[in-house]
């Protein structure tokens, strides 16, 4: 009987506590700075082109092979009359978010700091009805950073 009364007392004591649950669709949990969502590409705002040169380092290091990278000669390179210092630049880039396991390896192997893990999504914004829609192409991958939606992060 003593034990049961103690259980009751424990239950009663929780009435005095502040609730920890959130009214989910209205209020969201604030994401920590380091939050790791899916990888996105970064936009060089000075040169007006992506940082990525299409060197295939992330593609080779990806454990689940969710990336496809194609490289091209940079049309804006100095040798052809442009202003950019990048001889090669990314042509096409696809990441299949349905396969990505968010391991952060692509960020670590990148030689040009061109890719990072997004830290603004809470997950549900990316839900789609068709799996094929999860494949992101280059403009989609760059759009987050170009529009300045990314929060500052620390993991770089």
């Amino acid at each position: 009987m003593k034990g049961i009364l103690k259980s009751m007392a424990t239950t009663l004591s929780t009435f005095a506590r502040k609730p920890v649950t959130r009214e989910y669709p209205e209020t969201h949990k604030e994401l920590p700075e380091r939050d790791r969502a899916f990888p996105v590409l970064l936009w060089d705002k000075e040169a007006h082109e992506p940082f990525c040169t299409g060197c295939h380092a992330c593609e080779r290091a990806c454990p689940v092979e969710c990336m496809t990278v194609l490289m091209k000669d940079n049309p804006a390179h100095k040798s052809v009359g442009g202003e950019s210092g990048r001889r090669k630049i990314i042509d096409k880039f696809w990441i299949d978010y349905g396969r990505c396991m968010r391991c952060n390896i692509c960020v670590e192997v990148c030689n040009f700091d061109a890719i990072t893990m997004n830290n603004t999504w809470e997950g549900h914004e990316k839900s789609v009805y068709d799996r094929a829609d999860l494949v992101q192409d280059l403009p989609m991958l760059l759009s987050e950073h170009r529009s300045g939606e990314l929060k500052p992060w620390v993991n770089e």
């Binding site: 009987m1 003593k2 034990g3 049961i4 103690k6 259980s7 007392a9 424990t10 239950t11």
Partner: peptide
């Protein structure tokens, strides 16, 4: 407190 000493448990 909730479970361990509870007689029912």
């Amino acid at each position: 407190g909730l479970v361990t000493n509870n007689e029912i448990f």
